[in-house]
Design a protein around this nucleic acid. Structure first.
Lengths: 227, 227
DNA sequence: CTTCGTATGTTGCCAGTGTCAACATCAGGC
DNA sequence: GCCTGATGTTGACACTGGCAACATACGAAG
């Protein structure tokens, strides 16, 4: 239906975007789907102006709704940010799974996952920061966030497990190895986001290099005399 | 003139720390070394209560000084945070250099650097977040911060260069390889800080594993037939 | 020693923020 | 047709970062 869904990296946020601009003059007292609209507006604000620029009053005003209407759908600002983070993990997981499956579920697909991971972070730096920047402190407070975060990580674990079954990667403890891989992509992503890789194309270059070296690092030991 | 300037790596924090508790009743109008005291108080607050809890009024009150006295020493709150970050990079660099030199400047020393890096981050999570969490946006605004950050990274580059000269690591582009190593430790540190490795000892375990796999990843290609 | 400019610290004040309590409006089941 | 709960509004409060005007004290110049 939506032609933009054919763009590989588009996450479908445009749907809500249209609803955002459709502010009818008749202004029904009840918004209909305010929670979703609030989330989308927060997402857009964070993407466009950063996390600090997110203010409950303005997001309300932008939706033509009062400043405290938000409290009927989120406990407080942190809860809103937690929802934003949850949404981010969902999108991230989706991109990872897509990269894995469309890449053929092999070593190249695994590399694609790495590229996709860093790509998501670099394309949505503020959003990524909400997910990892310590804005939502204890994940225990918001179980849904913990669940979605774990699911995104699981996509990585599953792919790695498949490679392990085919002896493409070492037989080490799966969780440990997955966490190592995660550290690498997360590290590259964070450095890129924070402007520590200022040269043009530096993030991509580093990512390519990291993927190669990572591949060497987690490949099985070559038994003496093997081809 | 100042005797503490003779200590190579000492940043004089101890002095101010005593001045912090020594709040004489006579309350001289001029504080003497308020800038240093403000920085230390900010550091302490960030460490104890997190970045969000840092408020200019409270830090002033805690020093027995008015809320706006700070503006005679820092342009605004971001400038204070930038100074905190600068201090962090200085300390981090010191720990890295110490680990490298006391470890014998060999492969083991390099591993010690990794441990020291993650150790610093995990022991001072909030401080580390100020350094990398996007609180001080463009490093161009505060050249001193950029300098100190580059110096910390340079410690890593220098160590890696030494290993490269001895053919202990590959002959790849030095900057690229250093950035890769940085990504790994930074990634482990960030995941640890964000509570993504909840089990007790998980950070250390991951760090040990990462160091091992990283070593394999950046070791030179074995020419066919070598021992 | 006095004088005085300047660095340093203070007080009053402002707009803006998150959040709560009290009130208003509506939708849907009896 | 009425009432109950869900949803949205208004008023208020404490708190924040920051500015302008004022107060104080150090140190150099006479």
């Amino acid at each position: 239906m939506l032609t933009m869904s054919t763009l590989p990296f588009y996450d479908g946020r445009g749907m809500a975007r249209t609803a955002r601009s459709a502010r009818k003059p008749r202004r029904p007292y009840h918004h209909g789907n305010l929670r979703r609209a609030l989330l989308d507006e927060a997402l857009a604000t964070i993407r466009d102006e950063g996390v600090d620029a997110l203010t409950l009053r303005e997001i309300g005003a932008r939706l033509g709704v009062s400043r405290t209407a938000l409290y009927r759908h989120f406990a407080d600002k942190r809860a809103l940010l937690a929802a934003v983070a949850t949404e981010g993990f969902r999108t991230l997981r989706q991109r990872l799974v897509t990269a894995w499956e469309e890449g053929g579920r092999g070593p190249e697909a695994f590399e694609s996952m790495g590229i996709a991971y860093v790509g998501f972070a670099v394309e949505n730096p503020s959003h990524y920061r909400v997910m990892f920047g310590g804005f939502v402190e204890a994940t225990a407070y918001t179980p849904e966030l913990a669940t979605e975060g774990a699911a995104a990580f699981q996509a990585l674990v599953d792919a790695l497990a498949a490679l392990q079954r085919n002896a493409i990667v070492r037989g080490d403890d799966l969780l440990l190895m997955a966490r190592f891989v995660w550290s690498v992509v997360h590290g590259v992503a964070m450095l890129g986001i924070d402007g520590q890789l200022p040269e043009r194309g530096a993030v991509e270059e580093l990512m390519r290099y990291a993927v190669t070296r990572l591949g060497t690092g987690i490949s099985p030991d070559r038994p003496a005399g093997s081809t």
